[in-house]
Design a protein around this nucleic acid. Structure first.
Lengths: 344, 344
DNA sequence: CGGTCTCATGTAACCGGTTCCATCGCACCG
DNA sequence: CGGTGCGATGGAACCGGTTACATGAGACCG
């Protein structure tokens, strides 16, 4: 069917040169005479020659491929990070292959096999913390790995890009304090989860420390830890808001959970932002729709930086693993307002 | 550094067999004696041998790779489709490489070069209509291509998976008619766009034909074509709703635009669904948040089916290009209600 | 005019698998 | 007992590039 594939030997023959010279012309090596180079290139064009990537990879001993290990499911912002990664790789010689992970089992399997199999020249891991053992193994392994949005100690010695969750919690606290709030609640993830995420915990710590500096404490009944989903968060918020004494503002560790808080308030007839201010985290698409005040992470930028670090590590492994910190921003919309007098 | 990569020759030597036998054992060819096979496999395990994909690809003459050409930007549901694709490829021998496309120029470039370069064994194209010329070229080309969610005539002779936009428009119409609406407006994309999308147009046609069957017509002033964004749709809806005589229901060609309609109604003090019913299309994540009644496309399923068709085309090119139709569903939520008496 | 240096090019090995074809040992058969 | 068939294995070519090393032609120099 597909009668032939044109190989570099065909090109060489037609141009009356050796394959070595043809290869050198193809790769723009300086040593070839400009006139012969041009002749070879035009023969290539005439014949419709495209070099076989498989053959290149084999002889180069490089895969010319970067793997991205990602979980589409767990968080919707993965796509935005991926765009940032792609923006960098598109201008490089590397292909971008996706390893989608939907279970903890598969995660560890991928991370440990991709670490030494000859499938990629480098690995980007989005939001998936490795186990301690796998992390240590990757640190010693032959292929560079960059973690994006992973905050566990298991990646301590490894290159990574992290959003500053502590600073994000601080931003939310400062915003609420400036609006005059003193009665502040928190809704976040359960303190331990199977993947080992720590973002929620760090955001809470940032919030607490900034509040403490202003002399404000969060009573235990205004803290709701639990599963990540919107409906679960709504249930926790409902319990908190239905009590005799309730906060005038709630900081949620994610927009998803903030939307749950809003739902709970609506059910109880509590007006937002009149009676209750709500701050989320992430700035997902829906946050804009509902006018949610939130803390934004630089998603696209995190992907971009991660890919840049990875390429540089592939080129030359740095002595010290590079770590990029991306500061969060506060996006003020319509769910926060000054605290009413006489409450709290 | 990385002292050595274990090759199949190392394995053969340690096991006291030839590379041919080692290769056969690796690939589970029947001809090897079970005892030697087991011995070889255990040697492989001991040595930590992993076969080089590059070498395999070269000698097999197949890339063991499937490319997905996708535009993350234009529509957010791409990630969900990608998950469907991944679900199929994960259990196959193929790697999934991403070609992200953000401009028309890049689209045509990718589609025409990937079509004969030896980079992939097959191509999936998400929501990106090729030009007429490129479409014809792909139909004759050596690598199978499957289009998902492309409705232009340029893919007529090619394998594809399409949502039935006509049926979707019909569903919306029937729902509104059953609720007693007779004054119905439409908000959609401009009639011509650079990428050549036709979904909005088809949904409108489905709506109109079903309405016509019930003797209902849409007056021109209740039709708003324009740019796809939420804010643009809001402006068009505002103009429509601020007029003396306004519809009791609006069908929007996408959820994004439906959210714009909702915003316009809120600004004008028009209550939803009391004074105005709104139906969207797509069932994006935010639709659930705001309780939008909408027409759902089977996103994950479309990716799955597309990948299955592609694998089958790679295995054996069918005489007739397979075409899968995925019927849409109506998801009734809180933005539609019976029409009030005495209007229209 | 021979030696040396440089530039351009060719020869052939190599990357690490797969597979065609040949070989070998052995059971079975006439 | 020699021929035949079969199952298991080995030798070596091959996929299509890259590149170390060798070669050859001039240019330049003493």
């Amino acid at each position: 069917m597909t009668k032939k594939a044109v190989t570099i030997r065909d090109v060489a023959r037609h141009a009356g040169v050796s394959v070595a010279t043809a290869s050198r012309a193809l790769n723009g090596h300086a040593v070839v005479n400009p006139r012969t180079r041009d002749r070879i290139l035009s023969v290539m064009a005439d014949l419709g020659f495209t070099p076989s990537p498989a053959a290149r990879r084999l002889s180069l001993g490089r895969t010319l491929t970067v793997g991205v290990v990602v979980s589409f499911l767990t968080r919707p912002q993965a796509a935005e990070r991926l765009r940032g990664v792609d923006a960098v790789l598109t201008d490089s010689e590397f292909d971008l292959v996706i390893y989608n992970v939907e279970t903890v089992l598969k995660r560890d399997h991928y991370l440990s096999t991709l670490g030494h199999s000859q499938r990629t020249d480098g690995l980007l891991v989005l939001s998936l913390p490795p186990s301690q053992a796998v992390g240590a193994q990757l640190a010693r392994g032959p292929v560079p790995v960059v973690f994006i949005d992973v905050h566990t100690p298991s990646v301590n010695g490894l290159p990574r890009v992290i959003g500053d969750d502590l600073a994000g919690g601080t931003l939310a606290a400062r915003h609420l304090l400036e609006l005059g709030h003193r009665s502040i609640g928190f809704i976040g993830d359960s303190t331990h989860d199977p993947f080992g995420f720590t973002s929620s915990h760090d955001r809470e710590r940032g919030l607490r420390s900034e509040l403490a500096a202003a002399g404000v404490e969060i009573p235990p009944e205004w803290v709701g830890h639990g599963a990540h989903g919107r409906y679960e968060a709504r249930d926790r918020a409902r319990a908190m808001l239905a009590a005799d004494r309730r906060p005038t503002a709630i900081f949620a560790a994610s927009d998803t959970q903030a939307l749950g808080v809003i739902a709970a308030a609506r059910e109880l007839g509590i007006r937002i932002p009149g009676d209750l201010s709500v701050v989320g985290y992430d700035d997902i698409e829906a946050a804009d729709y509902v006018g949610l005040t939130t803390v934004r992470q630089q998603l696209f930028e995190s992907g971009r930086r991660g890919a840049e670090i990875l390429l540089s590590e592939i080129r030359h492994r740095a002595d010290e693993p590079p770590v990029a910190h991306l500061p969060p921003d506060l996006v003020v919309r319509a769910t926060t307002a000054p605290a009413k007098e006489g409450r709290g």
